[in-house]
Computed example of a mutant assay.
Amino acid sequence: MRGHDVRLQQWVVSMLLRGWILAVLLVFAPLSHAAEGVDVVQAHLENSDDGVKLSATFAFELNRGLEDAITHGVPLYFTTEVELTRPRWYWFDEQSLTESQTIRLSYNVLTRQYHAAILGRLQQSFSSLDDALSLIRRPSRWLIADKSALKPGAVYTVAVRMRLDVAQLPKPFQVNAINNADWRLSSDWKIFSYKAE
């Protein structure tokens, strides 16, 4: 009987250890997806005849869940946000400017074409997902401020980020996106200084 008790104890310990390892894997598996995100490779402001334009480049990959969503007809919205603040020694920083640009990425099953549209301005069609993502990763320079909006000679703190905008998804997908790490795709704010001319 003693040999049987020892084997039973070993089996119980083995099962508990396997259960513990499985639990650890299940807890940390979503974190590996959540750690994936968007990198702001470069961002700077440029002066033009029209005003001030943002030039930015982003690096990211879509995970399997997002790729499946897009190929099944769910459009994805990528929003780039830029904020300009002017430091003040006597009070809080002045919020000078907040602008955003959203690019809608969709797939047409009938034509087998991907469409990337900068809302309200431009739409392009692409034969591959990677080509469509290139427009999101390297968007064209866009006007964020008229020349008169910024004070000449003033130094501004500029913050830029890009994120998957789940608030623009169809309602059933918004609920899923909030609870699913696959849908959390965002960059940290990239901060730099800009002197207005």
Rank of each mutant, 00 (worst) to 15 (best):
E197D: 08
D188G: 13
P30I: 03
D130N: 09
L26C: 07
V160E: 08
L164D: 00
W89I: 14
P172G: 12
L150H: 10
E94L: 07
D39S: 15
K151W: 03
M162A: 08
S193G: 13
L31I: 14
G120S: 01
R112M: 09
R2Q: 09
E61N: 07
L76R: 05
A43I: 04
D93L: 09
A181P: 01
N176K: 08
A145N: 07
A43S: 10
W142Q: 03
I136C: 11
A43M: 02
T85N: 04
V12F: 15
S32R: 06
D5G: 08
R184E: 13
E197T: 03
V24F: 07
D39A: 15
A132M: 02
D5L: 14
L8P: 00
A117D: 11
R141E: 15
T102G: 03
G3W: 14
D188I: 08
E99L: 10
L22Q: 14
V160S: 04
V166L: 04
A167Y: 03
W189Y: 03
W142F: 09
L143S: 00
I70H: 00
A167R: 03
G65S: 15
K190A: 12
F92H: 14
L185H: 02
F92N: 12
G3D: 08
I191Y: 15
V74H: 11
P75Q: 04
P75G: 05
H4D: 05
S48P: 09
G120I: 01
Q124Y: 07
K190V: 13
V166K: 04
L97I: 09
Q168P: 09
T98L: 12
A167E: 01
N47F: 08
L31F: 15
I144S: 02
T79A: 06
G65L: 12
